[in-house]
């Protein structure tokens, strides 16, 4: 089952987070994300506002790309496993861009009942430029 997640024992350092391809980004998704998130900054909706703000055109909410990366993480680790997730927004995502989300296992540790996996995670556009970079910690169930 796709959403079953995985056990701590089945993860090795160096494992790749299954890449998730999102987009091409359309205006309607930015409008929808504004409604769902409560972030109504017109810079994501109104090309004239974005131009006057010196940004050229509208661009995607950074949080939408972080949401994509969160989806890649939960697809890979299982829902409800992410306990720390931090990113830097490195470049803007524009309309028609494609965003590919992935990551890599950096370390594993167990203490008492907590089985933690540390990952580096990132999202890149269709030109291979990193748009989001960050780290995540997931707590996985153990077979033991």
């Amino acid at each position: 089952m796709k959403y079953a997640g995985r056990y701590f024992e089945d993860v090795q350092v160096g494992d790749e987070v299954t890449p998730l391809v999102k987009g091409p980004i359309q205006q309607i998704q930015l409008t929808r994300y504004a409604g769902a998130s409560g972030d109504f900054n017109p810079i994501h909706q109104d090309p004239e506002f974005a131009r006057n703000a010196g940004m050229g055109d509208v661009f995607a909410h950074g949080m939408l790309s972080m949401g994509f990366l969160g989806q890649a993480l939960t697809d890979w680790a299982g829902a409800g496993r992410v306990c720390r997730f931090g990113v830097r927004f490195a470049a803007l995502v524009r309309l028609k861009d494609t965003v590919t989300c992935t990551g890599r296992v950096v370390s594993k540790s167990s203490k008492d009942d907590a089985h933690l996996v540390e990952l580096e995670v990132w999202a890149q556009n269709q030109r291979g430029e990193k748009v989001v970079t960050g780290k995540a910690t997931v707590a996985l169930p153990s077979r033991a």
Partner: peptide
């Protein structure tokens, strides 16, 4: 929407970008 904070800082939303975000859950 952070409006009070932006006003206190002396700026407005047209100058704002999102630099980083972190959640501890």
């Amino acid at each position: 929407d952070g409006g009070a904070m932006l006003r206190d800082l002396g700026t407005d939303i047209s100058r704002v970008l999102h630099g980083e975000q972190e959640f501890e859950l």
